[in-house]
Simulated assay, not measured.
Amino acid sequence: MSSDDSLSCRHSWLRTQYRSTVECLRGLCRDESGNALILLAISVVPLLALVGSSIDMGRAYLVVREQSEVRFGAG
C-alpha cells in the first residue's frame, strides 16, 4: 500500500466520520423533545440573579433604615 492509498483511505474515513457527525447534529436540531428542559435550564440563571439581587437590596434597605433610626433617634 503506497502513501497515496493510505492518504486516500484516511480522507475517506474522515469524510465518512464528518458526514455521520453532521447527520447526527442535524437530527438533534430537528428533534423537538426536551426543549422545555433546555429553556428551563437557560431561564434559571437570570431568575436566580433576580432573586439574589432582590434579597441583597432588601437587606441593604433594612440596614440603611436601622442606621437612620439610630442616627436620628427615630422610634
Rank of each mutant, 00 (worst) to 15 (best):
L37C: 08
G27N: 10
G34Y: 01
L7M: 04
D4C: 10
S54V: 07
M57N: 10
M57D: 06
A60K: 11
L28D: 02
P46S: 01
G34I: 03
G27E: 08
S6W: 07
A49Q: 12
P46C: 00
G58K: 10
S33T: 15
L28H: 03
Y18L: 12
S33R: 04
E32F: 04
C24W: 05
G73L: 07
S8A: 15
R15D: 12
D5H: 14
S20D: 12
D31I: 01
D56A: 15
M1F: 05
M1A: 11
N35E: 11
G27P: 05
G34W: 03
D5E: 13
G27V: 01
A41E: 02
L47P: 01
F72I: 05
P46Y: 01
T16S: 12
H11K: 14
M57T: 11
V44C: 02
R71Y: 07
C24R: 06
G52V: 03
C24F: 12
N35G: 05
D31E: 01
V45D: 02
S12G: 09
V51S: 08
S6C: 08
R30D: 03
S53G: 04
M57V: 06
D5A: 06
E69F: 06
S43T: 05
G58W: 13
L40M: 03
L62E: 05
G58N: 09
G73E: 02
A36Q: 15
E69P: 05
R59H: 12
R10H: 14
I42D: 03
S3T: 06
A41Q: 04
R10L: 15
R10E: 15
V70F: 12
G52C: 00
G75P: 08
S2Q: 05
S8G: 12
L37F: 07
G73V: 01
F72S: 03
D4F: 14
E32S: 11
V64F: 04
N35I: 11
V64N: 04
A74D: 09
A41T: 02
C24D: 08
L37M: 07
L48I: 13
V63Q: 12
M1G: 14
D31F: 01
V22F: 02
L40K: 13
S68I: 13
R15S: 15
L40S: 13
G73P: 00
D4L: 14
D5C: 07
L62I: 10
C29L: 11
R71V: 08
Q17N: 03
W13N: 13
R59W: 10
L25P: 00
E32H: 07
L7D: 03
P46M: 02
L62F: 04
D5W: 05
G75D: 09
C24P: 00
G58D: 09
M1H: 12
